[in-house]
């Protein structure tokens, strides 16, 4: 889905960074007819929705003073069913951009991007920003999904077990992993990344890993990066009621140095991107 924003909305999105998000109000979007709704969601769509829903972006472009926001999403519940029913020309209220996106340290020489399942959109956005504006940083991307059908990126025949492939559009190297082996490496994307890292010449200090995906995948990447001494940023996901820090619902447990104590930070305001060393993952 693409959203077009003019005026203030376009201005607000001019400086957006990959990993930031927006809250969409889908309460006014009409429901598709029941036969177009997957059976497992037919009960869910009868629920009257109330809250906004947070979405990150797979791309944001400014064209003729308008911001074009691409949103990749899966239909999983009462709100996304309504989103799928939006037609060209429909309007929704967008609150954003919100939160803190990925921080790109300019001195790094190698950026490794890990996308798991529906964690792909902000990674795609980040890949584009890196490819366009950080020519001195080599970028390698990894994408994982249950199977090739679940892969949100276009996958070409060139993807081999552990070998170079084209990242759609941006000309970046990409490696694919699927749980069932239907495309690329058979297994977890973090395991694919671990094996690749062993064969790749790199200096830990010059390398950074950016991650978005299921929490177990983020935890696994964080552990690997810590062992290798590589900086790692993870994009967290939590149930949110507001996205603006008001409700305090989207708590992410974070350590406080060596004290053994932990605090809850807010995914929406303090994140959603965190330094992986701060986060105590909820597994």
């Amino acid at each position: 889905m693409s959203l077009e924003l003019a005026g203030l909305g376009a201005e607000a999105f001019e400086t957006v960074t990959p990993g930031q998000f927006a809250e969409f109000d889908l309460t006014g979007a009409s429901l598709p007819s029941p036969e177009d709704v997957p059976v497992e969601l037919r009960d869910a769509i009868e629920r009257k929705i109330l809250l906004r829903r947070p979405f990150s972006f797979s791309d944001v472009r400014i064209e003729d003073g308008r911001a074009i926001i691409d949103v990749l999403y899966a239909v999983v519940g009462a709100a996304t069913v309504r989103m799928a029913g939006l037609k060209p020309g429909d309007e929704i209220s967008v609150l954003g951009p919100l939160g803190n996106g990925f921080t790109i340290p300019v001195k790094k020489k190698l950026a490794i991007l890990l996308a798991g399942g529906m964690g792909a959109p902000p990674i795609q956005h980040l890949a584009k920003v890196l490819a366009a504006g950080f020519k001195n940083i080599e970028v390698v991307t990894f994408a994982g999904a249950k199977s090739s059908d679940d892969m949100p990126f276009a996958v070409s025949d060139k993807n081999t077990a552990i070998g170079p492939a084209e990242f759609p559009d941006y000309g970046l190297e990409m490696l694919i992993a699927t749980d069932d082996g239907s495309t690329g490496y058979k297994g977890l994307v973090t395991e694919c990344f671990r094996q690749w890292l062993q064969t790749c010449e790199h200096k830990a200090d010059d390398t950074i890993v950016f991650c978005c995906g299921p929490e177990a995948m983020l935890a696994s990447a964080a552990k690997l990066c810590e062992a290798e001494g590589i900086e790692c940023q993870v994009s967290m996901e939590r149930r949110m009621a507001c996205g603006t820090g008001l409700c305090q619902g989207c708590a992410v447990e974070c350590g406080t140095g060596n004290s053994g104590q932990s605090v809850y930070q807010m995914c929406c305001k303090d994140g959603p991107v965190f330094d992986s060393k701060e986060v105590i993952f909820d597994l």
């Binding site: 009257k48 929705i49 109330l50 939590r238 149930r239 305090q248 708590a251």
Partner: peptide, 20 residues
């Protein structure tokens, strides 16, 4: 006070539950 673990919020029919 640190507050409760997550999930702390969930939408319900025309409403929401919170346990912050």
């Amino acid at each position: 006070r640190k507050g409760n673990p997550t999930p702390r919020v969930v939408e319900t029919d025309a409403g929401m539950l919170n346990a912050i």
